[in-house]
Write a protein that binds this DNA or RNA. Sequence first.
DNA 1: CGCCATGTTGATTTCTATCAAATTGAGTGG
DNA 2: CCACTCAATTTGATAGAAATCAACATGGCG
Lengths: 218, 218
Amino acid sequence: MRHLSICQALDAEELTQLEDIASDSVFDERVVLFHEEDEASSVFNLTAGVARLIRSLPDGRRQVTGFALPGDFLGLSLEKTWRYSAEAVTPVVACRFRRSVFEAFADKNPQLIKKMHEFASHDLNMAQDHMVLLGRLTAEEKLASFLVEMKKRWSRIAGHEPGLIRLPMGRQDIADYLGLTIETVSRVINQMQRDRKLVIVPDGIRFVDQNYFDALAL
Amino acid sequence: MRHLSICQALDAEELTQLEDIASDSVFDERVVLFHEEDEASSVFNLTAGVARLIRSLPDGRRQVTGFALPGDFLGLSLEKTWRYSAEAVTPVVACRFRRSVFEAFADKNPQLIKKMHEFASHDLNMAQDHMVLLGRLTAEEKLASFLVEMKKRWSRIAGHEPGLIRLPMGRQDIADYLGLTIETVSRVINQMQRDRKLVIVPDGIRFVDQNYFDALAL
DNA sequence: CGCCATGTTGATTTCTATCAAATTGAGTGG
DNA sequence: CCACTCAATTTGATAGAAATCAACATGGCG
């Protein structure tokens, strides 16, 4: 449990208590961790794997609001129902807390609530960045920003291969994250490869011309 | 101060303390309350007026990430620097707290931090809604969603005229909020008027066909 | 009354979506 | 091990929604 960044707020005894209310869950590829509008009875902390966070419209259009990577938390808002769905992009391992117990625990640990608030504030910043991307960037800029973001996020995760930008999610997920179609995502990435800006490799891409991406990214 | 929703978390004595660290500020139309990347030395609670929240790109493109209405808080994330700018759309009156004092106060009032976290969670939901709007809605749907949102928000504010949807912000602000151009905003609104879906009135619009908007809005 | 910012309207372009096939490739079973 | 299958991706042709470019109108205010 000590690897959980949120646990910096807790002392040794509290950590032990938190361990007691946690259990590990495993989700196969494509499995739904939880669904939009369902009762939010758990708090998750991803240990391994990648999940997509989705909001859907009645007619089937979807917006991927984010990708959860190892270390990320889901459900810290403590609202009664989920406001988005989460699905495993790869097999996912998550540390799971019963919401009621986690909440009772948080009520007794002001420092934990403060940490949760910091996490929420960070997520809000990310969301605002993404609004700029969705509202004002071109398809090429959106892809560049996305790839730079993924490079940054993977680099913070222990055990990643530097240089490789893993893209375990499919083109459709990337399209739904960037407000584009799958065809546009495919075209832009392949054009970048033709222009020697990147190379497509199994399970991801590698930057060839980092300057190009830094200049385009948000 | 008692009208501040966040103060529900405090008892009478605490409220008095909070009053002691607050002061009212007035901002004329177009005046900048604070600027992206400046040190965040204040927390604001809008008492009157409307402000636009803006993220800018180096080349001048802008994304309005939200509009602050009376009752709204700015700066509850308690991060060191502002991540967006706020400008008065109309003359604004805001209750202002020195950040350092507010933060020290919050540290002694766990219930206040919890309330701040609820506010941040709510903002995050709004931001995710807006991502769907920006990424997946048509121009017509964006305008309908925006107008329905403004109607809902004004209806929660005491002293509003029911039926009138006030739009104190200019067409350019609406365009930058919805990820459109000013011409498209103008065209869509005026087309809606020609189609008898709404009427344009001084300082805002009125719905004629509420069903039309409910069907289109997110 | 006229000025200047703001908003509206029209013509045209452009970027991305849509429609439509190929191609690739991972997984399956013979 | 290899052919087969089906989903995912790529590529091509075309359409379409919104942007851009360009006037023109409006209206608040000195």
